[in-house]
Design a protein around this nucleic acid. Structure first.
Lengths: 198, 198
DNA sequence: TACGGCCGAGTGGGTACTCAGTCGTTTCAG
DNA sequence: CTGAAACGACTGAGTACCCACTCGGCCGTA
C-alpha cells in the first residue's frame, strides 16, 4: 500500500525532468528520449502517466507558474518601489543566471502557443500570474503615492512585454544590449515615481 | 538569353513563398512541401536555388529586413515625437493586421536563433536595423530638445524589447491586453517628452 | 544537339507513440 | 505460513509517419 499521491509525485518528477531537459536542449530539440533520460526511467514509462509529450510540457509549465508566482509574491514588501525593482530584476534575468535556460524555454513555448492548444492554457495562466503580480505592485504604489497617477495594468503589461522581449533579444540572439536594457527598465521605473512636491 | 538576375528573381519568389507559408502555418509547421506549394513549383525545384531549407528562410528574413527598414525610415520626419509614435504604431502592430502572421513568425524564428547558426545572422541584422532606426529617432529628439535628456540607445532597446514581447503576449497567446499595451507604450513615450518650461 | 530549369519518385534518419510482456509486491485461499 | 493469482509500475523492441534532401531523367528553348 502506498500513498494515494504516488501518481502526483511521479507526474511532478516528470515535470522536473522536462525542466532539466529544456534547460539543456531547448524546446526545439526536446525529445521524449531526452525527457526520459532526465527522468530516470524508460521513454515508454513516461506514457504511463501522460498521453502525449505536450501534456508533459504542460505539467512543467504548471510547476513553473507556481514557482514564478511564489518568487514574485515573496518580493511584495511594503515598499512598492523596491518591490517593483526586485520584480524587474527577476523578470529581466540575464543569460548568465542559472534559470536563464528556463526563461528561454518559456519564450520558445510562447512562440508556439498560437498553434498548440495544449500549451496555450498553462502559458496564459503563467503570463496572467506575472501580469497580476506586477499590477498589484504598481497599484499599491499609486495608492500610497510612491508612483505618479499611472494606469497599473497598462504599466504592468508594458513591463511584462519588455521583459519577455528582452529574453529573446539578449539570450537568443546574444545581442549585446544587456546593459542598455537594464538602463532602459531602470529609467522607466524612475519615470514612474512621483515627483517630490517642489 | 535571359536577364542575368533570373536567379535573383527566382530566389525572391521563393522568399515570398516562405513568407506566405510562414503566415499560414507558422515556423514549427513549416515544411519544404508547404513552401513548394506557395512557390508554384515542385519541392525539388526549391533545391535548384537553395541548398537547405534554412537558406530559404534566411532569404525571407533578408527580404523582411529590407521592408522593415524601409517602413521605419520612411517615417523619420523632422518631428521626432511624431516619428517615434509612428514607429511604435508600426512595431506594436496588433493581431488583426495582415502582417501579424509575419510578426509571430519572426518571433518564432527569434526563439530558434539560439540553436540555428544560419538564421542568427539575418535575424541579428533585422533587430539591429530596428534598434538603430529607433536610436536615431530618439537621439534626434534629445538633440532637438523634444525629449528629456535620456539615453537614446537604452530607450530604443527597451522599446524594441517591449514590441517584441508584445507580439508574444498579444498575438501568440491571444491574451486580452492589446489596449493595455497601447496605453503602456503611449504613456512611456509621453514620459520621454521634455516638460515645457514652467 | 546542348543545356538550363525543373520534376517524380525515392531514401534515410529521426521521433512520437504502442504493445506485449516482465518483475516485484500485495492479496488471499487453503 | 505458503503458494498462486492479481495487479500496478515499468520496459524493450518495435511501428508508422514525417520530412529534409537527392538523383536520374525530361522538356522546351537556343
Amino acid at each position: 500500500m502506498v500513498s494515494p499521491d504516488m501518481d502526483a509525485d511521479a507526474r511532478e518528477s516528470v515535470a522536473l525532468a522536462v525542466q532539466r531537459a529544456l534547460a539543456q536542449h531547448g524546446y526545439e530539440r526536446l525529445t521524449t528520449a531526452k525527457i526520459a533520460e532526465e527522468y530516470e526511467n524508460s521513454e515508454a514509462g513516461l506514457y504511463y502517466y501522460f498521453d502525449t509529450k505536450d501534456e508533459m510540457i504542460a505539467a512543467f509549465l504548471d510547476l513553473a507558474a507556481d514557482h514564478i508566482r511564489e518568487d514574485l509574491l515573496r518580493v511584495e514588501a511594503d515598499d512598492p518601489e523596491a518591490a517593483l525593482r526586485d520584480a524587474c530584476e527577476f523578470l529581466f534575468r540575464t543569460p548568465d543566471h542559472e534559470h536563464a535556460g528556463i526563461a528561454v524555454a518559456i519564450m520558445e513555448l510562447l512562440s508556439h502557443a498560437q498553434y498548440n492548444e495544449t500549451l496555450r492554457a498553462p502559458l496564459l495562466e503563467l503570463e496572467t500570474a506575472c501580469l497580476d503580480a506586477l499590477t498589484d505592485i504598481v497599484a499599491a504604489g499609486v495608492e500610497q503615492g510612491a508612483f505618479r497617477d499611472i494606469e497599473p495594468r497598462a504599466t504592468a503589461a508594458f513591463l511584462l512585454a519588455a521583459a519577455d522581449g528582452s529574453t529573446g533579444i539578449a539570450v537568443a540572439l546574444e545581442m549585446d544590449v544587456t546593459d542598455d536594457l537594464r538602463q532602459g527598465w531602470t529609467a522607466y521605473v524612475d519615470s514612474l515615481l512621483a515627483e517630490p512636491a517642489e
